[in-house]
Simulated assay, not measured.
Amino acid sequence: MAILLAHSVITQLLTFVLRPTMTYRALELHVPSAMLGALAASFAIAPLVLALPAGRLVDRVGERRVMVGGALLLTASSLAFLELGGTVGGLLAASMLLGTGHLGCVVGQQALVANTTGRERYDTAFGHYTFAAALGQSAGPALIALFGGARAIPDTTAIFAWTSGIAAGLVVLSVLLPGSGHAKAAGARAAGGVRVLLRTPGLGRAVLTSCVVLAAVDITLAYLPALGAERGLSSGTVGAFLTIRGLSSMGSRFFLGRLTAAFGRRAVLVTSTIGAAVALALVAFPLPVWAIGALLAVVGFGLGAGQPLTMSWLAESAPPGSRGQAMSLRLAGNRTGQIVIPSVAGLLAAGTGAGGVLLVSALGLGWAGVAARRLPSGPDA
């Protein structure tokens, strides 16, 4: 389990340093604000098409092989940012490689958690798994602050060079991962797995909540740097904001098992999502730096619970041998949201600025939180 958690940390570190750095490189290239949403959405284009096949592949060949492939693609992405990141086309291509590599790593990780954990411990196991992911999400922006200091735009070339080395280390770690041994048992069930899952009551609402929560995370990654630039904040300050958000997500995930045991899975999901929506809406308004940091802590705590709770719910609903497909189905919904929502946000940014984008994202979060009230209660409610 320790190797898996380390793998999750490094995967998310790479993703959460490369995506904001891509935004800074785009600003260096004088890319207009409306185009930033398209760049953010490019991360999800290939994974949207490949999510379900990736889930079937995990069920058939095992989690480790898919994670090795994902780590190789993350390495290729870092090198592409370094060598091709001087043009918008190069940034788009590198971002698509990043999204595909991230998909291979996370679908393998999530299936491995589901296949090696007892059903009664799903909330705790997925909470700890996503705690590790949040640790990586916090460390990534911290690297930006390290390379940026007081400058408005950090040294993007140095960041891309360092991430190439880190990604190569992830390949080695992937080879050392154990498998669950469930791959051979999945063959006979793989063909009908998705059809069975689609008939599960409440699945649509769970996937909807998951994709809106993840899109809100994407919006903060893409538009907090833009908001900071609009308000004259340094890249170090913005990196600190993103770190606060990630650390707060770690807190909610570490204690997730206790929270759901005390209040129920559905109640925790609804409350956390609506709370994050309110805080994110307030960030859109002109506020002191300390107030923005405090609100982002609330945002992080609320958004941190959404992903592991939907993972637990799907892992519990899926039959053994189909859990890779269950996780990939959720990821397909996430990627749809990552394409549609940031693209719409980019159009809004042209007229409203980064603050308007955050406000609209908050409204979407609030709606998803209300919709989650109709999810099946599950065993913990």
Rank of each mutant, 00 (worst) to 15 (best):
M67A: 12
F263P: 08
L29F: 07
P319H: 13
L197C: 06
F241P: 12
R64T: 06
I159R: 04
L48M: 12
L363M: 12
L36P: 00
V113A: 05
L79H: 03
V298E: 13
A183L: 07
R323D: 09
C211E: 02
A34D: 14
A332M: 13
V238A: 08
A354I: 02
A71V: 07
T243E: 02
L224S: 13
A161S: 12
A222Y: 13
G346I: 08
P178F: 07
A51Q: 13
A93I: 14
T130Y: 05
W162Q: 11
T209K: 06
V194M: 15
E83W: 15
A206Y: 00
L74M: 08
G181E: 02
I274S: 05
T243L: 10
T352D: 08
L309R: 11
Q325W: 04
M327D: 02
G149T: 11
V357K: 07
I45R: 03
F301A: 09
V299E: 04
S361Y: 02
A315K: 01
A139S: 11
Q338S: 11
A185L: 14
A34F: 05
A139W: 06
V172S: 05
A71L: 13
L259R: 13
I341H: 00
G275Q: 06
V268M: 02
A183G: 03
L72S: 07
L363S: 08
T220C: 15
R56A: 15
S249V: 01
R266L: 04
S235Y: 10
A34M: 11
A318E: 04
L73P: 11
V66N: 02
N115R: 14
A158H: 09
A34H: 07
S252I: 14
I244F: 07
R189F: 09
G179N: 15
S138Q: 02
G70T: 07
M327E: 00
G85R: 06
V344E: 01
A76L: 15
L375E: 01
L103G: 10
S138H: 02
F81A: 09
P154Y: 13
H7P: 06
L221T: 03
A125K: 07
